[in-house]
Design a protein around this nucleic acid. Structure first.
Length: 631
DNA sequence: TGATTGTGTCATAGC
DNA sequence: ATGCTATGACACAAT
């Protein structure tokens, strides 16, 4: 593993992409491992590795000898390669030893190429062309577009960046091919004539046939109509007319993109934040006329492919841009299926260098959001999980964190010891999706804008920024001002143990710690107050409900009392009637009616009824003698 | 313009 | 001792 370790120590990285593609009703999982060359290597010298579950295959039409160069080699552009760089064969062997069954040499485009091959021949052809065209700058998914692509203009941004040799390519008439023109130089002419393209694609399908373990799950090679001559197919213009967004199923999802980088060599120049959008834009725009673009900026606000800065990009820069473009293409194509979706506006929105939580599709951490924030400190790509260096990784790790300078950035990276055999100095970039804090209040947004917001997008931008500022709470603003590297939600929501460990793990000033604790206290108290009010409201509502119930019960009781009183009155009336009826029938010894005013009826314990004179009755004496006088 | 309402915050008590 | 929760009180903005 010494070569791989050296590779890592030299600044190389490993990009792991897990892609879920749906093609012609078949779902394909792609695990791609992309060796990121050290900065000393050039951008077209990439290696795409197919993982154990991978379906990525070799496609490196640009260099028959392949690889990223040899030690001590002089690049065609005259740039001396890193003499310490291991050879391709050495790396391949060592990566194989890690359990990767097949290690093809390819460009990043290969994954697209292969994903098409898993579908059908037509789709494959179309997508090969489209993929190549889009990867080449996406200016055209047609032959013309392909020509434009290789000729510069809206073509391959990498080619546009690659220097004088590419300028010659722009002038030279070339045959449209499915392959991306090699920005590296001499290899460009080789693949542009199509022969190398043929070789590479055939090689791809040979690999498909010869590597059953690399077959797509559930897809036999027999299901894949392999053209007799891919190169012929690729030279056919018909294959370039396939709409890329149609060829690829719309539910192409990016599950995961993890960038493993050993050091800070992937630091992204904040002044070039918009460059990463270039291929995406070109995918959506066929405008290739350089005159339509401002210096460094095209009509839609993106840098022109002929931007001189791009010519100076390192391989890391290019790789970063390329991967961002892949993700953006995938996600934005998916978004494009929705109504009223304007990919240009969205891309511009994503390109907002000071993008903030206002853009977050779901700041509650929707893992599928495509929020993209190009802060000057960090390139956090939301679901794409992009990170270019340790510094940015710190912000990655600290989802929604306020960009700031931290003296111990290495502390801010989570280390995943289980991810690879290179864990010694690899950092695993956890991806979060809340981008609450990216803006630095001291940095005016206008000063960090590399492009303008033309027309309708200007309105979107204004509305977006307005919402963003308005949505910042006071604590969020305070945290932003102090560059607190955590979001308020994180500070408030995490358990106390995690909170304390977090405070101990990161270098924070007393002021920051104090503010963080205040934020946590206020946040928790805020929630408590909300709960308290809700509870109080519930109590009030319950009391009101009780009052209603009691009032109803009271009414019921009143009704019952009224009914009882009525019954009592009836009973009284009946008793009165009976009383008078009894007296009307009573006779004294002389046969005269008994005067009820002088006598009263009295019941005894044994049930007998006595006629008692009222004066005697009042004294309690019973007039037993009257007993016999009853009738 | 004042009353009402909702919300955030602080202080404090209790667990 | 510390942290969390509950709650009264106050301030402030919106309605």
């Amino acid at each position: 593993m010494k070569h791989l370790k050296r590779w890592w120590s030299a600044g190389g990285g490993l990009l792991h992409l897990t892609l879920l593609l749906s093609l012609a009703g078949l779902r394909v999982d792609l695990d791609l491992y992309l060796l990121l060359p050290p900065p000393t290597l050039l951008r077209d010298e990439l290696l795409l590795l197919g993982g154990p579950a991978s379906s990525a295959y070799a496609l490196n039409p640009f260099s028959a000898s392949g690889g990223w160069g040899r030690a001590g080699q002089l690049h065609p552009k005259g740039r001396e390669l890193d003499p310490a760089a291991p050879s391709e064969g050495q790396l391949l062997r060592e990566v194989r030893a890690l359990g990767v069954p097949f290690i093809p040499r390819t460009r990043v485009d290969a994954w697209l190429v292969h994903s098409v091959a898993a579908g059908s021949a037509d789709e494959a052809h179309g997508l090969l062309g489209a993929a190549a065209a889009s990867s080449a700058g996406g200016a055209g998914a047609s032959v013309d577009g392909g020509s434009q692509a290789v000729q510069g203009g809206g073509g391959d941004p990498r080619a546009a960046r690659s220097g004088p040799l590419d300028a010659e390519e722009e002038k030279a008439p070339v045959e449209p091919t499915a392959q991306v023109p090699d920005a590296g130089g001499c290899a460009s002419e080789r693949h542009l004539n199509g022969t190398d393209t043929s070789f590479s694609l055939e090689d791809l399908f040979q690999l498909l046939s010869s590597q059953p373990e690399n077959s797509l799950e559930g897809i036999s090679l027999g299901d894949i109509p392999l053209p007799g001559s891919i190169s012929d197919g690729m030279n056919s213009s018909a294959h370039y007319h396939v709409n890329f967004s149609q060829a690829i199923s719309q539910d192409v999802n990016l599950h995961e993109a993890i960038l493993l980088c050993p050091n800070n060599t992937f630091r992204r120049n904040p002044t070039r934040t918009s460059q990463s959008q270039e291929p995406f834009l070109q995918l959506n725009s066929h405008t290739t006329n350089p005159e339509q673009t401002l210096p460094g900026t095209n009509s839609t606000g993106f840098l022109s492919p002929v931007d001189n800065h791009m010519r100076n990009l390192t391989s890391q820069d290019l790789l970063y841009d390329l991967d961002v473009n892949i993700f953006d293409e995938i996600n934005l194509m998916s978004l494009a299926t929705e109504d009223d979706f304007d990919p240009i506006d969205v891309s511009q929105l994503f390109d907002e260098p000071d993008s903030d939580s206002g853009l977050s599709l779901d700041s509650s951490h929707n893992s599928t959001s495509v929020t993209k924030s190009n802060s000057s400190q960090c390139v956090c790509e939301g679901a794409t999980g992009y990170c270019t260096d340790h510094e940015s990784s710190s912000h990655h790790d600290l989802e929604g964190a306020v960009g700031g300078d931290f003296p111990e950035p290495s502390k801010l990276c989570h280390v995943d010891q289980s991810d690879s055999g290179f864990h010694g100095d690899l950092t695993f970039q956890h991806v979060f999706h809340n981008h609450t804090y990216h803006l630095q209040p001291s940095a005016p947004e206008s000063t960090s804008e590399p492009f303008s917001w033309p027309g309708r997008s200007q309105k979107i931008r204004s509305r977006y920024l307005e919402d963003t500022d308005r949505n910042l709470s006071r604590d969020e603003q305070r945290a932003k001002a102090l560059h607190i590297p955590f979001s308020v939600d994180e500070i408030v929501g995490m358990p106390v143990d995690s909170f304390n460990s977090m405070l101990s793990r990161y270098y924070l000033t007393d002021l920051q710690v104090s503010l963080i604790r205040d934020i946590r206290r206020r946040g928790k108290n805020k929630v408590a107050a909300q709960n308290c009010r809700k509870r109080k409201l519930d109590i009030i509502l319950n009391l009101e409900n009780d009052v209603c119930n009691l009032q109803a019960k009271k009414e019921t009781l009143k009704r019952e009392r009224t009914q009882c009183n009525k019954a009592i009155n009836i009973m009284k009336q009946k008793l009165h009637d009976l009383y008078h009826d009894v007296f009307s029938r009573l006779r004294d010894d002389e046969g005269r009616p008994v005067n009820p005013n002088h006598y009263a009826l009295q019941c005894t314990h044994d049930g007998s009824v006595l006629l008692v004179p009222k004066e005697l009755g009042a004294s309690g004496h019973k007039k037993e003698t009257q007993k016999g006088k009853r009738k």
